[in-house]
């Protein structure tokens, strides 16, 4: 099978390593071009707007809104099998140029719809999450704990 796009070893050399490292420090960091200030997502080595390689990471609030969502009924990912059926959200981050990130919805599913506000919670790395720290999301605008 083909390599994943960001496959690099060691893990700390991956272009998206600062994202995962940030989540471990309970910070949501999104990539941005140091030169032209364009938000760059998904993270990559080169700014498509100005061609610069000087990319930086900026902390943004872990809040967003539902860009799309699914409810998974089959155990496609073994580590999530016990959660079936579960809802994933594609979260739009208006404060980061509209970058979109995926995540698990926790808590009430009542009122799930495109555009609904979401608040993120930082979760430590676990076997479920491929040993990576992640954000999970709940509906509503309450301030993250």
């Amino acid at each position: 099978m083909a390599n994943e796009r960001d496959e690099v070893h060691p893990f700390s050399d991956r272009v998206d390593h600062p994202y995962w490292e940030g989540l471990g420090a309970e910070e949501l960091r999104i990539q941005r071009c140091a030169g032209c200030r364009r938000w760059s997502w998904p993270a990559d080595w080169r700014c498509p707007a100005c061609g610069a390689y000087d990319m930086v990471w900026e902390q943004v609030e872990p809040v967003g809104r539902v860009y799309s969502w699914i409810r998974t009924h089959l155990p496609f990912v073994p580590a999530y099998a016990d959660l079936v059926p579960y809802v994933n959200v594609l979260v739009e981050l208006p404060q980061a140029g509209g970058a979109r990130i995926m995540g698990l919805l926790t808590g009430s599913e009542e009122g799930i719809r495109i555009g609904a506000p979401l608040t993120g919670s930082f979760q430590p790395a676990s076997p479920r999450t491929a040993d990576l720290p992640v954000l999970t999301w709940s509906l509503g605008e309450q301030v993250a704990a």
Binding site: D16, V77, Y80, L83, M102, T129
Partner: peptide
């Protein structure tokens, strides 16, 4: 990649 799998999407 990981942006999917860590969240139960694969």
């Amino acid at each position: 990649g990981l942006a999917y799998r860590a969240h139960g999407i694969d």
